[in-house]
Amino acid sequence: MALKKFEIIEGKGVSVKGNDIDTDRIIPARFMKCVTFEGLGQYTFYDVRFDENGKSTNHPLDLAKTANILISGANFGCGSSREHAPQALYHWGIRAVIAQSFAEIFFGNCITLGIPCLTLAMQELETLHDLIQKNPQVEIQIDLLQKQIKVADNIFNLEIPEQARLSLINGAWDSLGELLESKAQVEETKQRLNIS
């Protein structure tokens, strides 16, 4: 499978502040009753974007509809393993997430969809939030080769596990193609493990 190689991601940011933002918050469970992911974008962060009467709360996502880089806090994407969460973000238009840290299953789900998840130190993350709040149009450049985020006159050093970074820049982020190649070895492992 020929996959896109992610070296540079550019665009505008949306600041969704807070720690421990869970996948129930990113996509409430009632919107998971679907047999495909296509229509999920509209339900992203639904219960914080709308009040109980369905009225818009003017959430940052609605104020920055062209933003493609979401910035949040620590432990982003904790809780349920639902891929519906990164799928909803993707279909909303998000192409990268920057946070202080990520929950593990969410991180893996994002990489498999080609959504880079980058980590910044707390102080730099705060600066990034401030820059976006001051100027929502500020251009953000994520450079996965240099491991840097460039915004206005700032250069921040980003962190991402090396295996994930390599899979993104080499266009190997969806592992299915490679998994399919080792049929004989899989069969061998299966036989070796047979205890019945």
């Binding site: 519906h84 799928q87 299953i105 893996g108 789900n109 498999t112 592992s175 299915l176 399919l180 899989v186």
Partner: peptide, 17 residues
Amino acid sequence: GIGTSQVRDILATQTLA
């Protein structure tokens, strides 16, 4: 726990990355 793309991976190969 795994995401749905990984459910796909196991269905197709009985393996995961």
